[in-house]
């Protein structure tokens, strides 16, 4: 039986989370999704878990700390955490900052095939 992947999904927009969850449910993968609406909530969810997360999908532009700041904090807590920056801000400068943290980059609107490959990988 395939292992269930534990995902942390962080986006301040409820619609963006609904959209992404809808896509994730169509990847055909076994996923356990936990949600947060900002960096503080994400850290709370992260620290309340007994089991480690396999992946975090993080929006860039959020109230308070942005997605890259949050990724830096999560990396401190779990250095091997695989992270994907999911953002409409497709500037090269943002891609570079994500790459510096070894984050993958996924532009919005999210492509199902690309998302599936990233979650599998």
């Amino acid at each position: 039986m395939p292992k269930v992947q534990r995902l942390l999904l962080v986006d301040d927009s409820r619609v963006a989370r609904l959209t992404l969850k809808h896509l994730l449910n169509n990847t055909g993968l076994e996923l356990e999704i936990h949600e947060a609406g900002n960096a503080d909530e994400a850290l709370e969810v992260f620290q309340a878990q007994q089991q480690a997360f396999d992946k975090a999908l993080i929006d860039y532009n959020m109230p308070g700390r942005d997605g890259i700041e949050l990724a830096g904090e999560l990396k401190q807590l779990q250095p091997d955490l695989s992270m994907i920056l999911v953002t409409a801000n497709i500037q090269d400068a943002i891609r570079e900052r994500a790459a510096n943290l070894k984050m993958q980059f996924l532009g919005k609107p999210v492509d199902l095939e690309q998302l599936t490959q990233m979650i599998k990988g």
Partner: peptide, 14 residues
């Protein structure tokens, strides 16, 4: 808001 975020960012980032 999310639609605007995607469309306006596409233009500005480009």
């Amino acid at each position: 808001a999310e639609l605007g975020n995607i469309l306006l960012n596409s233009c500005l980032a480009s």
